[in-house]
Simulated scan of single mutants.
Amino acid sequence: MKVTRQLIKEYRLNIDKKKLQIARVEKGWTITKLATESGVNRKTIGEIEKGSKKRLRYSTIEQIAITLGKHVEDFCSQFEVIDKEEVE
C-alpha cells in the first residue's frame, strides 16, 4: 500500500480596503479603469473598496495587485499562510 501526502497551502487574508483604494487613486485610476486593466469585475472592486465583499479569491486580489504594480501583502492588514497535509 502506498500513501501519498500532499501539502496544501491555505491563505487567509484580511484586505485593507483603504490600502487598495489609495493604490488605485495614486495611479489616477477610477474603479472602471482598474477593472478594465485587471480583468476583475468593476462591481467586485467596488465591493472590496466598500468592505462589503466577504469572500475573495486569492487570484482576484493577486490580479489587482499585479495590475497596480504591488504585492498582495501590500493590501493586507493580516496575512497568514497555513500548511495543511492531505493524505491520499
Rank of each mutant, 00 (worst) to 15 (best):
Met1Glu: 11
Met1Lys: 12
Lys2Tyr: 11
Lys2Val: 13
Val3Glu: 14
Val3Cys: 07
Thr4Phe: 07
Thr4Ala: 10
Thr4Val: 13
Arg5Gln: 11
Gln6Thr: 15
Gln6His: 13
Gln6Lys: 15
Gln6Ser: 11
Lys9Asn: 10
Glu10Gly: 01
Glu10Ser: 11
Tyr11Trp: 07
Tyr11Phe: 14
Arg12Tyr: 13
Leu13Tyr: 01
Leu13Glu: 06
Leu13Lys: 00
Leu13Asn: 04
Asn14Leu: 10
Asn14Arg: 13
Asn14Ala: 11
Ile15Glu: 03
Leu20Ala: 04
Leu20Val: 05
Gln21Pro: 02
Gln21Cys: 08
Ile22Gly: 00
Arg24Asp: 04
Glu26Lys: 12
Thr30Asp: 04
Thr30His: 00
Ile31Arg: 14
Ile31Gly: 02
Thr32Leu: 10
Thr32Tyr: 07
Thr32Ala: 11
Lys33Gln: 09
Ala35Met: 04
Thr36Val: 06
Thr36Leu: 08
Glu37Lys: 01
Ser38Gln: 06
Ser38Cys: 02
Val40Trp: 04
Val40Thr: 00
Thr44Glu: 06
Gly46Trp: 03
Glu49Phe: 02
Ser52Cys: 05
Lys53Phe: 00
Lys54Trp: 04
Arg55Asn: 08
Leu56Met: 10
Leu56Glu: 02
Leu56Ile: 15
Leu56Phe: 01
Arg57Ile: 06
Arg57Asp: 13
Tyr58Ser: 05
Tyr58Met: 04
Ser59Leu: 07
Thr60Pro: 06
Thr60Arg: 03
Gln63Lys: 15
Ile66Gln: 12
Thr67Cys: 15
Thr67Leu: 08
Leu68Asp: 00
Leu68Glu: 02
Gly69Trp: 13
Lys70Ile: 12
Lys70Pro: 09
Lys70Met: 15
Lys70Val: 12
His71Tyr: 12
Val72Gln: 03
Glu73Leu: 13
Phe75Gln: 08
Cys76Thr: 14
Gln78Ala: 15
Phe79Ser: 08
Glu80Ile: 15
Asp83Glu: 15
Lys84Leu: 12
Glu85Val: 13
Glu85Lys: 12
Glu86Tyr: 14
Glu86Met: 10
Val87Cys: 09
Glu88Lys: 14
